[in-house]
Computed example of a mutant assay.
Amino acid sequence: MSEPLPVHVNRTTLHGLEVPKSFETSESFEIRIVNHGEPTHVHLHVDDALSELAAIDATNHYVKRGSERRVRVTLTKDGATRGNLKVATAHGATTRYVEVVVTESEAETQGVVVDEDLAKPRPKSEAVESEDFSGRFERSIPVIVGTSLALGVAVTAAIVFGTDFVALAAGVVAVLAFAIAFVIAFVVLTD
């Protein structure tokens, strides 16, 4: 994280504000509000240009006598911009502006560094095996055919030997239980 942006309140006069003229960063940062005198509220606001890339969690901050408060400014997306941060106290009677320059981070400007080892082929034992959908479908054809045949036999038996609903339901449940066990066993044994 970059150095915080310093804001001094009540250092030389009541409701006095001391801020730098400009602040440059390439990442999220904190505003360090230091109160040298009476308790006060400090209002922070980013202008339209700066708000395209930066956001402040809250705009109004109470700072006790002789204490400091840190306020996080989060860069919400990558890019570069220039805008103003408004700092006000005494209900706006004292207002200062800091020009904030957001630059692109070094990682963005340099690109991605790729290790040369990634270009070398790995032995099959280290390689990640992947299957496409057609390979998985071909492996599951015996399971689909077996389940369909078993279900067909159960329904045919129920029709031939009587249309007793309880017998039909019991047969279908038995066939489905067998099919689920078969699928689980097939998946475990083939992986």
Rank of each mutant, 00 (worst) to 15 (best):
E3V: 08
E3F: 02
L5E: 01
V9C: 03
N10Q: 12
N10L: 14
N10S: 09
R11G: 07
T12W: 15
L14W: 15
H15G: 01
V19P: 04
P20Q: 01
K21R: 08
F23T: 02
E27C: 01
F29H: 01
F29E: 06
F29P: 00
N35C: 05
H36N: 14
H41N: 09
L44S: 04
H45N: 12
H45L: 12
H45M: 10
V46N: 04
D47A: 04
D47N: 09
D48M: 05
L53Q: 03
A54C: 11
A55Y: 00
D57M: 14
A58V: 13
A58Y: 10
A58I: 10
T59N: 11
N60S: 15
N60C: 10
Y62F: 15
K64N: 10
K64E: 14
G66E: 06
R70M: 01
V73K: 03
T74C: 05
T74Y: 02
K77L: 07
G79N: 03
G79Y: 07
G79W: 11
A80G: 02
A80R: 03
T81G: 04
G83M: 06
K86C: 03
V87K: 02
A90P: 03
A90V: 11
A90F: 15
G92I: 01
Y97D: 03
Y97N: 02
V98I: 10
V101P: 00
V101K: 11
V102H: 07
V102N: 02
E106R: 07
T109K: 08
V112A: 05
V112D: 15
V114Y: 03
D115M: 11
D117E: 14
A119K: 02
R122V: 15
S125W: 05
S125R: 00
E126H: 10
E126L: 15
E126C: 00
A127Y: 01
V128R: 12
E129G: 10
S130G: 12
D132E: 12
D132Y: 14
F133A: 12
R136Y: 15
F137E: 03
S140P: 01
P142F: 11
P142R: 11
V143F: 14
G146S: 08
T147W: 14
L149H: 03
L149A: 12
L149D: 05
L149W: 04
A150F: 11
G152N: 13
A154P: 02
A154M: 13
A154W: 09
A157M: 10
V160T: 14
F161A: 07
F161S: 01
T163R: 13
F165E: 09
A170V: 08
G171H: 00
V172Y: 00
V175Q: 07
L176G: 08
A177W: 13
A177I: 08
F178V: 14
F182G: 11
V183C: 09
V183H: 08
I184F: 13
A185I: 04
D191M: 08
